[in-house]
Design a protein around this nucleic acid. Sequence first.
RNA 1: UCCCCGGUAGCUCAGCUGGUAGAGCGGGUGGCUGUUAACCACUUUGUCGGCGGUUCGAGUCCGUCCCGGGGAGCCA
Length: 437
Amino acid sequence: MEHPMLDTWTRIDTLGDHVGKTVTLKGWLYNKRSSGKICFLLLRDGTGIVQMVMSQSDVPAGIYDSYHELTPESSIEATGVVKEDKRAPGGYEIGLSDLKIVSIAEEYPITPKEHGADFLLQRRHLWLRSRRQQAIMRIRAELIRAIQDFFDQQGFMRLDAPIFSPSNCEGASTLFSVPYFDHGEAYLTQSGQLYAEAGAFALGRVYTFGPTFRAEKSKTRRHLTEFWMIEPELTFADLDDIMDLAEDLISFFMERVLQNRAADLETLERDIESLRKIRRPFVRMTYDEALEQLKRIGGGPEWGQDLGATDETLLSSQYDRPLLIHRYPLQAKAFYMKPDPTDRRLTLNMDVLAPEGYGEIIGGSQREDDLDSLVSRMEEEGIPKEPLEWYVDLRRYGSVPHSGFGLGLERTISWICGLKHVREAIPFPRLMDRFYP
RNA sequence: UCCCCGGUAGCUCAGCUGGUAGAGCGGGUGGCUGUUAACCACUUUGUCGGCGGUUCGAGUCCGUCCCGGGGAGCCA
């Protein structure tokens, strides 16, 4: 699309369309090198990085001398001829003819050498400028786009759930509370699912996409206190339907990311071959089968306990594609999950574990659609009914079988990008002891 | 909440059984017409996380607190 106002200069990612022509670029100095009478300036503009070459013999002295003034991350406007050059990492370079300094940067704290996690997180606003972080953010954007396209194509409608929620309804996680006028405490949502169920009863197939919050004191590479979740909810759908849907979704976005963001995956030095293997069908097993297998390879909890992180890693490392584990013990799972009619000790739920130790990226279930069963389950779990009357109502007015799941965006990004920690998968991570910047 | 690891120059780290602190990078100056985390020479930089203790002497040993990292539980 043409944007006359925005297209007065050229973006680095479109240089291929301008070979041989003189263009103006705007951005920041990524790095510079010189060997006396020739110098190299690396320009970064958010769409890529290009090397600009300037010879003392080709440009006015005033412009050539500005090389010495320029510091890393200084902002500049540069004009020059686009040249194809095999020596240049991106395939193109700029033969510089004019250079205008917009602003000289103070000494930039982030150098091309290694830094520790604390140092970088404290400077996240600057860290995002690095090649690697840019690549992750582009993949994040691509993934979000792919997920939305997938659901749109499948006839889902996006319906957003509220962030303020009236009660700690699921009882499971510790929630953040905030004062809410004269109504006491409100809580930051830990999931949009219950609202998605209401939405599905109105619109058939919906998905929510928004931030969720957990006040758990989890200090691990897989946890954030604020993370984004995509939660599809479908009426007239059972457990098998959402297992199929989860496989389709993952296959779809993986293909899209591989197709459109290969260069970024390369920047991240991600092993692309292992991502190419992510195609249907995935591996499926029941909780009981998972336990059996864990016993063979040494591990596993007592029957009835949820699988621990170590067990999940152990299990999923046996396969090169995602693993779906379904039908967990009822006692380990939430009240809204429907018991398996063939074995009422089990629920009709499933988790999807990503390969390579990235752990649980999806959790979902068929929902309890029977009024009496839901109410008695809530009583057993000691869940206050009053704040959830609206949720129970859904079973009073035309209840139908329905199912859904939640996909953790940052964990999925971590997996795709091969990150060591989810904190790199979100622009400004919120962690237990860190909410700056 | 519990367990493990760490805190030394702006950054990343080394510093043995205690003897008064070092490298690389960065910064600065100079050199180089094809550099790719450029290179070469010279140069600059410290309340060794805080407090207390042991000792003739503590970056090093002990106690304690603070901060950070990883993991468990819980979860996406």
